[in-house]
């Protein structure tokens, strides 16, 4: 059986360097090949040990589960320790990641926008110019009515009961409140 496909991990900050090089290696020691630290491992290390986030918060930031985060973090520490002890180079590259900046939601015109220039703070909405906007992390996002509901309808194939579909909740897993059978998307 093939393993489960890895989810994309969200990385907010690119590392400013490509890697590290050891110096003062004894001349008779053979130079070993570099260790590859993945972007997600770099990000995990940065959040936990630099920003001092706890694992659950860091996992939420990266859009992965807490156990997955802990595994990535453990692997990052293992790699860094290995590089230190064996005097190897570290290159930071690869991994199943996507880069994203922080997103904001404007209350006036209802648009979402990001801030590509991290140095400057957002002062107003780029579309309507209003200053009523809030940062949208995943929790706020799902509370927003316009994104929670769509025009689709779930229905029960047995008794015909209908209900408005809620995003992120598969109809196939919903149980009809009337007859108790599994529902379907219309």
């Amino acid at each position: 059986m093939s393993p489960r496909i890895k989810k994309f991990r969200k990385v907010l900050n690119m590392p400013i360097i490509k890697g590290f090089k050891p110096y003062g290696l004894e001349a008779n020691k053979q130079k070993k090949e570099a260790i590859t630290l993945l972007f997600e491992e770099y990000e995990a290390l940065r959040m936990c040990d630099y920003d001092m986030f706890n694992h659950s918060k860091a996992a939420a930031e990266m859009n992965i589960s807490r156990p997955t985060y802990t595994r990535i973090y453990a692997s990052a520490r293992e790699k860094v320790a290995k590089a230190f002890v064996e005097g190897r180079q570290i290159t930071i590259e690869g991994g199943k990641v996507y880069f994203d900046s922080d997103w904001y939601h404007c209350k006036k015109c209802g648009c979402f926008f990001n801030n590509p220039e991290k140095e400057n703070k957002v002062s107003n909405c780029p579309l309507c110019g209003s200053d009523e906007f809030n940062s949208c992390d995943n929790d706020n996002y799902h509370q927003d009515m316009s994104t929670k509901y769509c025009d689709d309808v779930c229905f029960c194939p047995v008794c015909g009961f209908e209900e408005i579909h809620v995003n992120c909740f598969p109809c196939k897993k919903k149980i009809c409140p009337k007859c108790g059978s599994y529902m379907r998307r219309k």
Partner: peptide
């Protein structure tokens, strides 16, 4: 550094 604005309407 291009800004994305998303309108879900």
């Amino acid at each position: 550094k291009i800004q994305m604005i998303s309108i879900k309407n």
